[in-house]
């Protein structure tokens, strides 16, 4: 009985919170996001404290270029909107459309990650700005790299969910899973908003 109910495709209006498991996932995940906020804050604080300690290395104002960061920002903001579309179709019980938008989100995330790898590679090879060059470079790579790792993890999460549920449709069992993965993706975007402001824009301003 319970299994039938879980696998039914006749969904209530908030499928992600209709079961106790869904509610628990929802609450637990927001608790986790509160913790992540503090984790990223410690990395931001470290970066702000050390950003002028660049020793013989290149200072932030000469290192960062706004063009690439602007493109990366637009890509990540758009991917946040596409995952909103995916959740809209999830709530309307349209699994194919949801998969399509999740797929677009994954592609945008992959291009963001590609650009970030290109960026780091450029800094290391053309500017000699390695992880151990200075306190500034260590703090920079720790913060931005940690965010990049979150993007990579989020992509893996989306891809696994899509592969696992490709032919299953949307039900009360997998709806909470899609929903919290999309919350995670939005949170990554939230962190990036502060990274482009605090690291790149403030770095260029000096």
């Amino acid at each position: 009985m319970a299994d039938e109910l879980l696998k039914s495709t006749n969904l209530p209006h908030d499928p992600e919170r209709a079961t106790l498991e869904g509610k628990n996932k929802f609450l637990g995940f927001w608790f986790f996001l509160g913790g992540e906020t503090v984790l990223f804050a410690s990395l931001f604080g470290t970066y702000l404290a050390l950003k002028n300690s660049h020793l013989d290395g290149v200072p932030a104002s000469e290192l960062f270029g706004l063009g690439l960061v602007f493109i990366m920002t637009m890509i990540l903001l758009t991917s946040s909107l596409t995952s909103v579309y995916a959740m809209y179709h999830m709530k309307n019980n349209a699994p194919k459309k949801m998969m399509l938008w999740l797929g677009i989100t994954v592609l945008l995330g992959l291009s963001f990650l590609g650009l970030e790898i290109y960026e780091f590679n450029h800094y290391v090879n053309d500017y000699g700005h390695g992880f151990t060059t200075s306190a500034f470079s260590s703090a920079f790579y720790a913060l931005v790299g940690f965010h990049g790792a979150h993007v990579a993890f989020g992509l893996g999460w989306f891809i696994l969910l899509m592969v696992r549920n490709w032919k299953r449709g949307i039900n009360l069992y997998n709806a909470p899973k899609f929903y919290i993965a999309s919350l995670y993706w939005h949170f990554i975007d939230v962190v990036w908003v502060f990274i482009f402001t605090v690291v790149y824009l403030m770095g260029v301003v000096g």
């Binding site: 927001w30 608790f31 996001l33 992540e36 906020t37 503090v38 804050a41 410690s42 470290t46 702000l48």
Partner: peptide, 23 residues
Amino acid sequence: WPVTMIFSGIFAAFLTVLALTTI
């Protein structure tokens, strides 16, 4: 609860950044 958790997180985050930047 989500609002409570995020705002608690933001409060701790604010203190963290403040401490690290003033130290």
